[in-house]
Structure formats: C-alpha cells, structure tokens
C-alpha cells in the first residue's frame, strides 16, 4: 500500500503536520454555544470541527419506541456536505448510520437511563469539517453536551484514537495518516472507572502493537479528559467572574 507515497514520518521522527508520535492535535472545546438546543458543545481538533446538540429527556416520538423501564438514547451522526473535499451527499450514508450506533453504544453506559422511564434523549452531532478521528471527537463533544444538559451520568465519556503508520504506533491520526497508514484503533473511556465503552480496530496489528496502541489511546483520552472538564467548568466560572 505504502510504496507509492512519501514517508508519513520523516527522519527526525516527526509526522506530516510536525507532531511527535505521541502528540495530540490542538484541541479547543466550548460548551453551550447553541441556544436553541437544550445544551450543546463544540470541539475543534486541528482541522476537525464538530458540533453536538442535546434535547431531552422529553416525550419520545414515535411513542412505540418508548421503553417502560428506561430512557431511550438516540444519536445521529451526520457529516455536512461541505465537511470533506469531495461533496458528500447529505443523506445518511452507511458509514453515518454505523457511527450513530457506535456513538450511542459508547455513551449509553455513562448515563443513568433508568431514572426517567418512557422518555427519550436525542443527541445530534454535525461534522462541519472532517479530518480523521471524527467519531472520537464526536463522542467527546456529545458527552459534554449531555452533562451540561443536566442529565444524570456516571461519568463523562472521552474518546481518542491511536494507529500505526510507517511501522510506528502513533496517537490521534489525521485523515491522510488514517487513509495511508496501516491501522486505526479508536477507544472511548470513562476515565474515573477506567472502563472502555468503545474499542474498534481496522487494519492489521500484531498483539504487541495492538496493546501499545490501546495504551497510547487511553493515555490520549486521559489528556483530553482534563480539557473536557475544564471546558465544562469554564462556562460557569466565566459567569462568576463577570459578576464579581
């Protein structure tokens, strides 16, 4: 696969965008920027730009989907037509549907769904600009929006990917590295319990490499978790400062 292209890691051991193998991309997180949704979050991870909005818990429609014993969590992952270089059809693709499911399953264990039976929570994630690792960034943003909406949760969920390029295990792949590299391992984590809620792999890794990739991704998750918490608190601390 990799014979025709330039090296993904140069002689100094730096990647295409000048990062070290264990370095994350620049991350900016904001909470509560869309006023029409019950709560929202925005995450920018280098070129990734993702918005998440949450509604609920509210009465679920269509009603036959409601469960008598718990809340139904519905997720929608969607890429804007202008989010990638070649226009993407706005209709949900096979990939969009899969990622919606993956996101839901990553977030479900973190929420006390049994508290509000017969209701539904809707999570909408819109990818405005994509550059690899959007499923991880989406989970991170969606979890923040859920927490800010006042939904009872066991823990925040934070996600990060690791992968293999040019025979090196690296953290937080961007689009070109994902496409031209040889493997990608996204991981979602509930940091306070050390519980993994999402683990996928595409590509080929040896046992040792896989273990290394997972550990690297977990380490990345913990670093993003710190930023995630700060963003959540920042929304209310800024209010405090204005008044004082």
């Amino acid at each position: 696969m990799s014979q025709k292209l330039e090296k993904l890691i140069d002689k100094k051991g730096l990647r295409l965008d000048g990062r070290k193998p264990e370095e994350l991309r620049q991350i900016k997180i904001e909470v509560g920027i869309i006023l029409n949704a019950d709560c929202s979050a925005y995450i920018q991870q280098a070129k990734n730009k993702i918005l998440a909005g949450v509604y609920g818990p509210r009465e679920l429609h269509p009603k036959h989907l409601a469960r008598p014993d718990r809340t139904v969590l519905r997720c929608r992952y969607h890429m804007a037509p202008f989010s990638v270089q070649e226009r993407k059809s706005p209709a949900p693709s096979r990939r969009d549907i899969e990622l919606s499911k993956v996101m839901r399953e990553a977030l479900e264990p973190s929420i006390f769904l049994e508290y509000y039976p017969r209701t539904g929570i809707d999570v909408f994630v819109e990818v405005l600009q994509a550059d690899g690792g959007t499923r991880c960034a989406s989970i991170t943003a969606a979890s923040l929006a859920l927490a800010d909406a006042g939904i009872p949760m066991r823990d925040l969920v934070v996600a990060c990917a690791a992968g293999k390029i040019d025979n090196t295990v690296v953290l937080d792949l961007m689009d070109t590295e994902d496409k031209k590299g040889s493997a990608d391992v996204p991981v979602a984590l509930m940091p306070n319990f050390n519980a993994i809620t999402l683990l996928q792999m595409d590509g080929i890794l040896t046992h040792e490499e896989f273990e290394k990739a997972v550990n690297l991704a977990l380490d990345g998750c913990k670093r993003i978790y710190v930023m995630q918490k700060e963003a959540l608190k920042a929304k209310y601390e800024s209010v405090k400062e204005v008044e004082e």
Binding site: M153, L156, N192
Partner: peptide, 8 residues
C-alpha cells in the same frame, strides 16, 4: 466547588 459527573 464546581464538580462534573464522575468526580469522586
């Protein structure tokens, strides 16, 4: 102090 879900 402000706490977030999951804080011990």
């Amino acid at each position: 102090q402000i706490v977030t879900p999951g804080d011990l």
